[in-house]
Amino acid sequence: MDILKKISVSIQHGDDQSVFTLTKRAIEMNIPPKDILDHGLIDGMNIIGDKFKHHEIFLPDVLLAARAMYAGMDQLKPLLVKDGIPSMGKVVIGPVRGDLHDIGKNLVGIMLKGAGFDVIDLGKDVPPEKFVNTATIEGAKIIGMSALLTTTMPVMKEVITILRNQNLTDKIKTIIGGAPLSKEYARQIGADVYAYDAANAVESVKQLIQK
């Protein structure tokens, strides 16, 4: 088995120590960092994502794989930057103003990072301007907003209004999620995508980035 395949398998096993060691060795072997990323780390995460979708494995397995992914990613990141290879993309996430419920958002964060995205987590109770300002400063292409309360849902629309007012809706896409939300609500407020769970959020972000 070649070393990239080994990295992929170790990711699937959620074995962060092996991923760390193997990634280090792959770098020493002068394998291009982009190849280590695509054919090792991302390959492992894609298989994990697929198995999760088909109920062959469960959320803890995905999170463990994501943790193992960081162990490789932390070493690769500076090399990728040096090679001028852009990251998968930056995503700004947080629950909207007035909402202190961050469990779902945290899950989305872990899974997005696991898929190779740069995640800027704004914590909780995030004011509309902060989403937009952070995304602009950081060059993030996606804003992810969550809400658990029906009373905080309308704040999402405020974020979209700011983006519209600043003519940013082409550059910055929005994705929303949370228990009381729906595809229909996303349409109503003009959000680009609604995701029904964390795995779906990762899939949706991938699609948005490709657009």
């Binding site: 109920h55 939300l181 609604y194 769970d197």
Partner: peptide, 15 residues
């Protein structure tokens, strides 16, 4: 349980 038992949230179920 297998997929016969519906435990998806409504949006996923619709999807």
């Amino acid at each position: 349980p297998g997929p016969v038992i519906d435990r998806a949230n409504r949006s996923r179920w619709i999807e």
